[in-house]
Computed example of a mutant assay.
Amino acid sequence: MFVYNYFAEDHRLYVSIPLKITLDRTLFDDVAGLCDAVADRKGCTQVLISCKDEKVPNYDKLVLAYLYCSIGHLAKSVKGVKVLWHKNLSQRVISTVHPTHGKFVPTESIEDLIQSPNLNIYYFDSDKDIEKALHEISNFMVLYTSSINPDELGEYFTTVIGEIVSNSFNHSAQDRVFLMYDVLQEDDSYTFCVNIIDYGKTIVENVQEYFSKRTPSKMPNAIEALNWAIQKGNTTRTGSGGYGLPTLIEYLQKVNGELCIFSGNAYYMLKSDGSQKTELSHGHLSGTNVTFKIKLFNFSKIVFFDPTRETVEAISLDQL
C-alpha cells in the first residue's frame, strides 16, 4: 500500500511505496489511488516518490515498466504538478525500462527475454504499427504449449489480441496504446505476462453512453457495464465486434490462465482456478488496463483451434 504525507505549506506530496510489489490488482489500485490523491490536493505542485526508507527496490521488470508508464502519465496529465522520483528508484527504472515508440524489436528466444536486464515498453499510435508485436506475443503463447495446429492457433491469438488493441484505439478516443510483456519465474514455473494500457475513454463510460442513447431507463452501473462488455457479441461499435475480451476469457479459462481488466472504477478478475468476480476498485483509472498471464511449458493439455466452432479447445492428457 502506498503511504502519503502532504505538506500543505510546501505544496508537496510525499509518497512512499513498498519494497515488495508484484504486477497485480493491488499495484493497479495503488497507482490509481495515487492519481486520485494528487487530484484531491488542489494546491499540490510537487509529488516526490520513493521506496520505504529510501531503499533500493528489487522489483521485477514488468513492475518497473508499469510504474514508468503510469506515473509518467500522471506527470503529463495533471497540469502544474511536477513528479520527482527518489534517485534509488529512478536509477532502477531508467536502467531497466526502455520506452520504444512505434518500432517493435523482436526477441531472439525466450532465454534472451528471461535473462535480459532490460525491458522494452512499446507505445504505438496506430493499430497497424503493433502487428509485429502481436505476432510475437501469439508465437510465445503457441510455442510453449502442446498443439496439433500451431499455425492456425497462432493466427487466432493474433486476431483476438488484435481486437483488444483495436478497441483501445477505436473506443478510447485517444491515439496511443502501451504494450509490455515478459516471462516471469513463479513457483518453479515460467509465466508469460502481457499488459496493454490506454489512457482514454473507459469501458464503463463507453457502455453507459451506449445505453443512454438507446435505453436510458436501463442505465448500467460500473460493474454491470463492465460485465456487459465482456459478453460475447456485445459491442458499442457499429457493425461487428465484441469478441476480443470474451474470447480471451474463454481461452484463459481452458488453460488455467489469469486476467485482470481494470477500467474506470471497476475490475474484472479471472483467477487460475477458474473463479471470476467483478467489483468496484479503490481508485479510478482514466483508461483501460488489460493484463493476462499463462503458464509456459504447460504440456499437460493439448490446445488447438477448432475451425468449425471458431474456438480454442484444450484437452487434458489425462483424458486421452
Rank of each mutant, 00 (worst) to 15 (best):
101 H>K: 15
267 Y>P: 00
272 S>P: 12
159 T>P: 10
26 T>M: 13
237 R>Y: 13
49 I>G: 05
261 I>E: 04
62 L>G: 11
115 Q>G: 11
206 N>G: 04
251 Y>C: 03
171 H>W: 03
77 S>I: 06
286 S>P: 12
214 R>D: 03
70 S>V: 03
299 F>R: 13
52 K>F: 00
234 N>E: 03
246 P>Q: 01
58 N>R: 14
51 C>I: 01
197 I>Y: 04
247 T>S: 08
234 N>P: 05
96 T>R: 10
289 N>P: 12
142 V>Y: 06
123 Y>H: 15
124 F>R: 10
316 S>N: 15
286 S>N: 15
107 T>F: 11
91 Q>K: 15
242 G>V: 02
97 V>Q: 10
53 D>K: 10
203 I>Q: 06
251 Y>S: 04
55 K>N: 05
135 H>Y: 14
280 L>M: 14
10 D>Q: 13
320 L>R: 13
236 T>S: 11
219 M>E: 10
281 S>H: 03
34 L>N: 02
211 F>R: 01
141 M>W: 08
148 I>R: 15
202 T>D: 09
102 G>T: 04
46 Q>L: 01
201 K>P: 15
30 D>R: 00
145 T>L: 09
168 S>V: 06
315 I>D: 10
36 D>Q: 10
206 N>C: 01
103 K>S: 09
217 S>I: 09
274 G>S: 12
143 L>T: 13
10 D>T: 01
154 G>F: 01
202 T>V: 03
291 T>S: 13
306 D>Q: 12
167 N>F: 03
62 L>F: 12
177 V>S: 07
15 V>L: 00
116 S>K: 05
175 D>P: 14
315 I>K: 14
235 T>D: 06
135 H>Q: 15
307 P>Q: 09
166 S>G: 08
1 M>T: 07
262 F>P: 04
45 T>S: 06
55 K>D: 05
8 A>L: 08
229 A>Q: 02
162 G>Q: 02
93 V>A: 01
208 Q>M: 02
265 N>W: 07
229 A>K: 02
25 R>K: 13
203 I>L: 08
283 G>F: 05
109 S>P: 15
75 A>M: 12
50 S>L: 05
174 Q>S: 07
288 T>E: 06
186 E>P: 12
199 Y>G: 00
198 D>A: 00
60 D>G: 10
234 N>V: 03
231 Q>N: 14
109 S>A: 08
221 N>V: 03
13 L>V: 00
283 G>H: 02
279 E>Q: 12
253 Q>M: 11
172 S>Y: 03
